[in-house]
C-alpha cells in the first residue's frame, strides 16, 4: 500500500513486463503494466484457463504475472480467448479495472 502511494508520486515507477515468446507463427505476449496493476486479482478470477497469479515482485509490490509453466505455451492456452478476426478484448483485460493488461495478437 505504501509502495503504491510512493509510486503515485513518481518516486517508484513500475515496469512493463512482457510474458511470452515469438515463434515461427507469430508473437504471443501478455503485457502487464505494473505501474497500473495493484494486484487486486480480478483478472486471476476472470481467466478461464487459470494462467495468471498474483505475486510479490522483486521490488516488494503485488502484481499479476503469467504462471511460469504457461508463459511457454500462451499460443495454445490463450487460444479460447483469441479472436478469429479483428481486435477483441480478452477476459482478463475486461476484468482489469485499471487497464494494466494488454496482449500482442
Amino acid at each position: 500500500m505504501f509502495n503504491r502511494l510512493l509510486r503515485r508520486l513518481v518516486i517508484l515507477p513500475g515496469y512493463i513486463a512482457n510474458y511470452g515468446y515469438t515463434d515461427g507463427s507469430g508473437d504471443y505476449y501478455i503485457i502487464v503494466d505494473t505501474d497500473k496493476c495493484d494486484g487486486c486479482g480480478k483478472c486471476v478470477e476472470a481467466c478461464p484457463q487459470d494462467i495468471l497469479e498474483i505475486i510479490t515482485d522483486d521490488y516488494d509490490d503485488l502484481v499479476v504475472t503469467v504462471k511460469e509453466e504457461h508463459s511457454k505455451n500462451l499460443k495454445y492456452v490463450c487460444a479460447p480467448c483469441k479472436p478469429v478476426s479483428g481486435p477483441v478484448e480478452l477476459k482478463c483485460q475486461i476484468a482489469c479495472p485499471s487497464g494494466a493488461i494488454t496482449h500482442s495478437w
Partner: peptide
Amino acid sequence: IHCDERGKVTQFLMNDKC
C-alpha cells in the same frame, strides 16, 4: 531489459521458448 539510472527494471521481455 530496460532500466533506469539506478538499475531498476522499467521493461523486460523474456524469450524462453527455445
